[in-house]
């Protein structure tokens, strides 16, 4: 944990290890949120990890052939088969008897997780193979030029949900993926945000302790799709949590914990900083706020109800 002493302790900056596994020289945009997240994920995973990367920004920017930014064994699969590859690696290591030595980490974007790879992920979670699936969620297909994904929030601009007189951005709500994964009853499900590195770090470390699949959904801002100044990447990730746009929680063997209590800031603070929401009218913002309050309240109430029911059993 961060210490209050005025000197910096080697290997202990806010609890993160010094060793780097995602190196400089990658071609991500200036201020890339996912690139920050990759550094944190690989630090938490450690040197004995095997990374499985689905197609997406982080695969494209980090591996300009014949070079790579990764300092870990790294496999690239197509959009839809990151989870099956992880299953295969799990089976292979188990057959060799070296499964306990390695952590298998899947890194995939929201396009690969929410939409294209969803069936395969569901199947891998059904099989119960042990690996940690991390979705870096920037709420669009940012790599191919910001098309709408299942994670894009309602009213957001993307190139496939343009702004006009009739259409105000995406017309439907985003998919409640973390809850859908929770319905698979895998041992560990969590959400995190790039602005809270220690929380993310601890969650990844914890996910390795379970004997089964775990899923972590990390909200991470994208400069080009969200349309903001590149210095605001971390600020927006923090505002999303503070306004309740992104709830940071974990479900550990069915037990729900809200890790960071939202500060209850008005959602307008978060929306106003992003170009993808600049077309919103006051009525739209009021609708988003109302829906958000209801949705968050329902989620927490439902999960606490399950907690109580489990305590009784």
């Amino acid at each position: 944990m961060a210490s209050k002493s005025d000197d910096w302790k080697p290997g202990n900056i806010r609890g993160l290890p010094l060793e780097e596994f995602f190196h400089s020289g990658h071609g991500a945009c200036a201020g890339c949120g996912p690139a920050i997240t990759m550094r944190m994920i690989t630090k938490a995973a450690g040197k004995d990890s095997i990374i499985v990367n689905a197609t997406g920004c982080m695969e494209v920017v980090s591996t300009k052939y014949p070079t790579t930014s990764w300092g870990l064994p790294w496999v690239h699969g197509a959009f839809e088969n990151a989870a099956p590859i992880a299953s295969g690696i799990h089976a292979a290591l188990a057959a060799q008897g070296t499964r306990a030595k390695h952590n298998i980490v899947v890194i995939a974007g929201d396009g690969a997780t929410y939409d294209i790879g969803f069936g395969a992920i569901s199947a891998a979670f059904e099989r119960g193979d042990k690996f940690t699936y991390i979705c870096y969620n920037n709420e669009a297909y940012a790599n191919t030029g910001s098309q709408q994904s299942g994670a894009t929030p309602k009213h957001a601009w993307t190139t496939t949900t343009p702004i006009g007189k009739i259409i105000h951005g995406k017309e439907v709500e985003k998919k409640p993926l973390t809850e859908i994964i929770a319905a698979h009853k895998i041992p560990y499900i969590a959400t995190a945000s790039t602005a809270y590195p220690l929380d993310l770090f601890n969650k990844i470390k914890k996910s390795f302790t379970f004997d089964g699949p775990s899923f972590i959904n990390v909200l991470t801002p994208c400069v080009l799709t969200w349309k903001y100044d590149s210095s605001l990447s971390v600020e927006l990730a923090r505002l999303a949590v503070d306004t309740g746009m992104w709830l940071v929680y974990e479900i550990e063997n069915g037990k729900f914990t809200l890790n960071i209590q939202p500060k209850g800031l008005p959602v307008k603070n978060y929306l106003a900083k992003q170009g993808r929401f600049k077309h919103l009218t006051d009525a739209d913002i009021a609708e988003i706020q109302m829906h958000l309050d209801k949705q968050n309240k329902e989620l927490v109430a439902e999960r606490e109800c399950v907690n109580k029911a489990e305590e009784k059993i």
Binding site: W8, R14, G25, G27, K64, T68, W70
Partner: peptide, 30 residues
């Protein structure tokens, strides 16, 4: 690719328009 951590040759510093300047006197090493 058999050379891990090899993107170092790609000097991305040339993309920069604004340059961060760190004041060592103010820095608290957090």
């Amino acid at each position: 690719v058999v050379t891990p951590a090899s993107t170092g040759a790609n000097k991305t510093g040339s993309w920069r328009t604004y340059k961060p300047c760190l004041d060592q006197k103010k820095c608290i090493r957090c």
